[in-house]
Amino acid sequence: MKNHILKVEGLTKSFGTNQVLKGIDLDIAPGERIAIIGGSGSGKSTFLRCLNFMETLTTGAIYLDGTRIGRVVGKDGDKESVVYSPRTLCDVRKRVGMVFQQFNLFPHMSVLQNVMEGLVTVLGKSKGEARQIAEAELTKVALHEKLDAFPSQLSGGQQQRVAIARAIAMSPEILLFDEPTSSLDPELVGEVLRTINTLGEEGRTMLLVTHELGFAYRFATRVLFLYDGKIHEQGTAEEIFKNPQSERTRAFIARSSEFSL
């Protein structure tokens, strides 16, 4: 065992009385590219956001490189009370990067400054070094000509590529993509997917929540189908898309892929 980089155990998440995630277990090996699919309300985005603690877990544990995140301070029946210090969370987020559906770029900073920000304030790099890294990453996403532009001057696809550059500049061990193309015009989806694909080819560990089933099929080494807050079925892309075991998975794929597969 112990070849996994990220391990999730008994994860549940409730908002008030509404339980969104109902117990998820998952081991992720380095270099895996995992696509998470499922209908709206299946909890797939919430699950992804738990992995870098954008949402706090209700119960369950997450291990990064074999080390449990957070400090268990007591037990209340079956439920552990865990303290996640702000410092721990910052450390996790340095190692687990995230790209959002809405980009979440900083509108008051230029493209270059957006990518440099974390390098300087979080990793404590010098301005010069940060600039070098940022320029290199922006070149990788083909935006080296837009260094001094502001987010509002870019198309949605360009903004999302800046957001990707901002995330990979931190050299995270794992990258999370939360529906990265859902708020883009159709003609801009391709450029972002190509960028994500390139990152996959570099052997990065990635998790992607998406509605683009065609892309998930070509890209993922493993596909998770979430239904009602649980992993309903998982397997290789071939297994899930071509030969799903469960009727529910089959129905979802048939319904969603009429046009895209």
Partner: peptide, 18 residues
């Protein structure tokens, strides 16, 4: 300000104060 701005900062490891 949209919540995404706080999340954008948090996602690259910034503290709340930063």
């Amino acid at each position: 300000l949209p919540k995404g701005q706080w999340e954008g900062g948090a996602a690259i490891g910034m503290t709340r104060f930063q």
